[in-house]
Write a protein that binds this DNA or RNA. Sequence first.
DNA 1: ATAACCAAAGTGATCGTTAACATCACTCGG
DNA 2: CCGAGTGATGTTAACGATCACTTTGGTTAT
Lengths: 348, 348
Amino acid sequence: MAQPKKAASIWDVARLAGVSHQTVSRVVNGSPRVAAATRDKVLEAIAELGYRPNRLARSLAGGAVESVTVLTADTSLYGPEAALRGIEKAARSLDWSVQISVLDPADTHSDADIIARLPRAGEPTIIMAHDEPGMRAKQVLLDTQPQAMVAIGPYTAEELAASPWLVGMDDGKAAAEATRYLLELGHDTVHHLAIPTSTGTFGGGKAHRADGWARVLREAGREVPDPVPSGWTIAEAFKAVQPLVSDPAVTAILCGNDHLALATLRAAHLAGRKVPGDLSIVGFDNTPFSAYTTPALTTVNQDFESVGRGAFELLRHRVDASIPRPKPSWPEPELIIRETSGPPFARS
Amino acid sequence: MAQPKKAASIWDVARLAGVSHQTVSRVVNGSPRVAAATRDKVLEAIAELGYRPNRLARSLAGGAVESVTVLTADTSLYGPEAALRGIEKAARSLDWSVQISVLDPADTHSDADIIARLPRAGEPTIIMAHDEPGMRAKQVLLDTQPQAMVAIGPYTAEELAASPWLVGMDDGKAAAEATRYLLELGHDTVHHLAIPTSTGTFGGGKAHRADGWARVLREAGREVPDPVPSGWTIAEAFKAVQPLVSDPAVTAILCGNDHLALATLRAAHLAGRKVPGDLSIVGFDNTPFSAYTTPALTTVNQDFESVGRGAFELLRHRVDASIPRPKPSWPEPELIIRETSGPPFARS
DNA sequence: ATAACCAAAGTGATCGTTAACATCACTCGG
DNA sequence: CCGAGTGATGTTAACGATCACTTTGGTTAT
């Protein structure tokens, strides 16, 4: 086994180049106040020793902060995963590093647990606040270090514009659009298979999927059926949607995300109901697979990646006031009409 | 805006508790050499100031290493994503922190780029080496700091047992099992829609999906058709698989993963070929959605999460020799027969 | 009574880096 | 020809923790 010879430090480089360690630091950080000849000597020494700066020491010493921690509950959901990708890309282009810490929905983290996940007090943090653990974490961080946190979640344009630490998209509006579309197709009403966050005491906003759906139905003077609560997994959705699918009076279902829609599609198929002839199904998120189901899912596209990017930009501003606040923006949801939706009772 | 009052350090706690900073350190790290009364005083001070130890400073000072960096190329693939989850869970249970750094398949990272992603020299690293960028990164790390890296990828049991830094699963064996199954069903031969890593100069191992497939065909004395290369995305797969799907002589396709299988299923449907009547399709990975497609995908289950856990355990051993090396193990692939496979030319 | 020992706590160096300030050698204007 | 400015470097002090010693008292064995 090779001797793990210790990594070269800035001092080793300085010694080899015959300069002070500070000069090396200047070269590494691209300070203009270094003579070209000196710079070359240092660069040479760096190459020879294979020196690489130690980020830990750097941020300890009070150099500009250059890491973000992302708190998220479920990386297997498309939304958070895509947002994370957006954050990562944005961060990497500025050479920041990204930590992720997964909040387990199963165990109840104490506030201290959540705090303990941060590598240091004041660590810049982005929270995916689209479910219960995420909301908890958001609250804890808000109480602890509001100046170094940003939360991603479903919010209306007004909420986003008003809050200095929110980024998100208006799920309620997107759901409204989808619901309106189904109504225009001629359905008497639209049923809703809801993701966990859209139900119970959790909601109450105007930006949740279930809320947008209910609003449109009310505005149109239609019956608002009870939303059917589902878990996050496809298996749970499959089970939850059974009563809806086996009821011939149900002609349209808006699903909380594409996974739930897939489960619904499957359930409908097994129940012998034609889609979209007997039953229209609309999903949410435009998950990559959604264009390739049979029939292909009608769904609402959400640009999560750009939300992630936005969150990172906002965080930079929050952490360093000299960086201008990015204009609050949110991607417009876009209804993508494919094959699972149509007029009710169509003989397709 | 609240004054970002600086976070409390170990010295602040020491002052408040009327002890030395070292004593605080002892309390925080649970040293037995502290009088109960003193400990209480310190604990009280910690609570009052909301002190939390700074991880950066801690590992700078030479405390035990407590972070892993994961290098991966594509977090949207089910495999890497699940493995990452396994790593994260294992790491968190030991209070390690996890960094991720995404290797962009698009741009060609220089070796220095890859190295620069690590927060410090010698940073423990896990590499998802299942595609080209991952393989590159693996090589770079292997040259740079072999004692602090572990790679996850497709390897045979022998390879895994022989190498001190490999973790993985035998994709070749899994593919062989699936191919054998299709042959037993009565298909003359099996075609293969291959993920990028299974083709070209990349392969050559015995543990790749395409290799296991080809081996079984050869052993059975069957014709070995050219594998059809596909990209990672469903859209690419859909395009690539067209010729296969429109050729009535093709009765069975083994797909490199479930996304490709979904594309194949869709393409077959559009081409008017009945599945599994005219065409059998087998996927790979048992991605969550695969049980809910119509018809439900026959696929090969792979326990990525446990591979992730294994990688983390192995890494701990590599970084700290006093931790025993975990027994090399790899999850057994399991063929899950659902609805997309059957005998050829069945009148279903 | 005294050396030896031990637990409890303190002191100072150290990790790798940056910030702030100090120094030095020139150049330039008056 | 001198003081001011300036550009290139060096010096010292953090940052927040741990590690390896040292000091301080009080017990115990001789």
